[in-house]
Amino acid sequence: MRPDPVQSGAFAKALFTPELPAPNGLAGRDQVRPERRFAVYRNNVTVSLIDAMASIFPTVQNLVGEDFFRAMARLYVTAHPPTSPLLFTYGETFPAFLESFPPAADLPFLADVARVERLWLDAYHAADAAPLDPAALAQVPAEELAGIRFRPHPATRLARLRYAGGTITRRDRAGTSLEGVDPTAPEAVLITRPDCDVAVELLPSGGATFFEALIAGQTLGEAFAAAAGDEETDIAGLLGLALSSGAFSAIDIHHESPIL
């Protein structure tokens, strides 16, 4: 028998709204009141989601402390219940939540740290694909180089940040001190998974523009032209990063077969 959608909606609403009573229609056994069993279940679900949040955003938790994080995560879980049974997809709106969370207002960089951590998990769970062999470029005739297109690896993610979320996340996850880090410095990060491990790369000047163009399907020549607007751009360095980072899985020359 399919559950009544009205009853199912009421159950879900009560599950994530602590001030609401247990939904109607619950049945208990072993002389235990159904309201009590529901309260225990509701708490277990909430704690499980908070635990999931802590595993998704470990650096955010380290920055604010476990007690503060769990209290904050409980408020988030109540306001933003999951929409998918896959827990690793949860927390996509957490960075935006942090931006408007008054108790964290003195840590404006916290949302960008959460963005990097959320993208890290997305990259970790992305589809598998062999990264581009850097030697593949040697197979392209010189006159064809400007017209080649790079095929992004499924795990590749890129973000422009207002704060130093990439540096903070990298250092914290490596167990390195944050001493000397300016958290207010804007950054751009490239997140890849060249092997089994996710890597967070801090992009140099012009890097975000260059990789955004390549990921969007523009040619190498077009990406170079877009990034060249910044006189500090190291074109050779960006090309080397495109080949070595694992951000791409193949290159295409016009309509020929891809070079892996």
Rank of each mutant, 00 (worst) to 15 (best):
L145F: 11
A22H: 05
L119C: 06
E144M: 14
A142Y: 11
A226I: 00
T93P: 04
C196F: 12
L243K: 10
L260C: 13
P85Q: 09
E117Q: 06
V200A: 01
A73E: 03
V64M: 13
T219E: 08
G165L: 05
G240M: 10
A104Q: 13
D106I: 03
A52S: 14
T167F: 00
R42G: 05
A247F: 04
P82H: 06
G165Y: 02
V140F: 01
Y41G: 11
R70L: 02
E99R: 15
Y76A: 05
L119K: 01
H255E: 15
E117S: 06
A242L: 09
G240F: 07
E19H: 15
P3I: 13
T46W: 09
R162N: 06
Q139Y: 13
A159V: 12
E92H: 13
P204Q: 10
L243P: 06
A71V: 14
A27Q: 15
D197C: 03
P186R: 07
D67C: 06
T184V: 01
E231H: 14
D234I: 05
N24E: 14
R74I: 01
A250M: 09
P3E: 08
P81Q: 07
A27M: 14
A138I: 11
G217N: 08
A105G: 11
A247K: 03
A52N: 07
A135M: 06
D182F: 02
P103N: 10
Q218T: 08
A130H: 06
R42P: 05
E35T: 09
I50F: 11
A22I: 04
A228Q: 09
A199D: 13
P34C: 04
I235K: 14
A188H: 04
A213D: 01
S84W: 03
T167C: 00
H80Y: 12
T17A: 05
A27F: 14
D230V: 07
F57L: 06
D182C: 00
E143M: 05
E222V: 01
E256R: 15
D182W: 02
M1V: 14
H254E: 13
V77A: 02
V6Q: 13
P82R: 09
